[in-house]
Design a protein around this nucleic acid. Structure first.
Lengths: 242, 242
DNA sequence: CAGTGGTCTAGACCACTAC
DNA sequence: TAGTGGTCTAGACCACTGT
């Protein structure tokens, strides 16, 4: 079974444009070359360029204005912790410049009840694994993660490292998360919920989410609580023209 | 000055597909006709169709799978309170099926300090208006909104209704918000912060955001606190292939 | 192998901005 | 009026899925 490993041209063009911005030291408000010039420079079709530009615009890197031009929009052009981008907890911690670690991990096994059956699209009674982990960023509590996934996704008869990214583990079985349906709720956790907290109360952002593979199969159901002292989440919201 | 009021074809096609789903009573998991059929049906070019499909996919309405087909993904196809969609507080309240109202409003005038100067891209000292409002959904506290905007955006010598949407007010001056840079933080508000709360503490989602017009001009800086008891925020997060 | 969505190109015309 | 991004079409070829 051959798999396409090539990166799409439009994605490579995105990176080229980012490199262009860096190498020419373009700052917020500066103007990007016009489309025709970039077409010359990259030797590509216009649709390809426009796809790349549309992505960069939705990521907040550039801003296009009909009749005027395309401009750099972002101030730092660095890590923005964009909410719309799916990342593992490990990646989030690294993104704020901290070292990720896991200070507690509890694993239990259970059978799917009707709720989990629905969320994960498995039969009631299906064998599941529940992994609870306290994740740290430079020793500070970063997140409390409760992940539930079908046991069949686990590699049997093999020592598995849950300390790192669950994403990597799933990738080994070709179940790498491609997108997630997420619901965000501000939440207060007490020491009863999370004994390792230093204070009696902490404010967290709960991400309740179902992860799906690129095949559209549900691979994991999670309740991840992100510490509000460490993370804040940025997003660009747009007016829908529909 | 003529302005284009026509809705782009790709947007109309999105709506046609949604209508198709409704009229054919397609449910989650059902299959949408293949691209070639839709091209015939709508008599359009493939790029246009694919733009429309890409938007519907990012909205979570459909799911495309290479080699297999396009499928309905959403369960209710109703209000999802999508975070990536820019909406006014009024619209958010209506979206959860409640009646919006305003129970308190304080207006004050101030001059831009260096912080506001930067956020709103106006000179230091520029005349600003600060509007604090307690918004309700069916009499329950829905949000506490603090909006700051340049005084010149206000219609002078005219009675203005702040009770409704600030968006509408700005639209009158061709400064309608087109997108926003938002930062989300879970927050606890006390009765000291918000005296009309029934309990001593409440959990809120703080949206700190700058709104921009389609011309790329900053039009409003807001700190909006949404009551976590009333709202939860959904979003589809995707793996970036860059 | 046929069916389906994914990527890419070339080119036409339109709408907005600035001069 | 010239320059720029926005919309739309037609068509070619590729990659993945299932038979």
């Amino acid at each position: 079974m051959k798999v396409n490993l090539e990166v799409p041209l439009q994605t490579r063009v995105q990176n080229k444009i980012k490199e262009y911005i860096k190498s020419h030291d373009l700052r917020a408000g500066d103007r990007l070359p016009i489309e025709a010039e970039l077409l010359q420079l990259f030797q590509i079709g216009r649709s390809t360029l426009r796809e790349a530009m549309a992505n960069l615009e939705s990521q907040g890197v550039i801003q296009r204005q009909q009749g005027k031009g395309t401009f750099i929009r972002q101030l730092p052009l660095t890590l923005a912790n964009g909410l719309d981008e799916l990342r593992s907890v490990t990646e989030h911690i690294k993104a704020v410049g901290a070292v990720p670690s896991t200070s507690r991990m509890d694993i239990s096994y259970l059978a799917a009840d009707s709720e989990f059956s629905e969320k994960l699209s498995v039969p009631v009674g299906e064998a599941l694994v529940k992994i609870e982990r306290v994740r740290r960023a430079d020793d500070k509590i970063a997140a409390f993660c409760v992940d539930i996934l079908p046991r069949k996704f686990m590699v049997v008869g093999q020592e598995v490292d849950f300390g790192g990214s669950l994403f990597e583990l799933l990738a080994q079985k070709d179940h790498h998360p491609d997108y997630a349906e997420s619901s965000l709720t501000p939440t207060v956790l007490t020491q009863r919920d999370l004994p390792e907290m230093a204070q009696s109360l902490g404010v967290f952002m709960l991400f309740e989410e179902v992860f799906y593979s690129r095949h559209g199969d549900a691979v994991c159901y999670s309740n991840d609580y992100y510490n509000a002292d460490i993370f804040d989440f940025k997003i660009i919201r747009r007016r829908q023209n529909g």
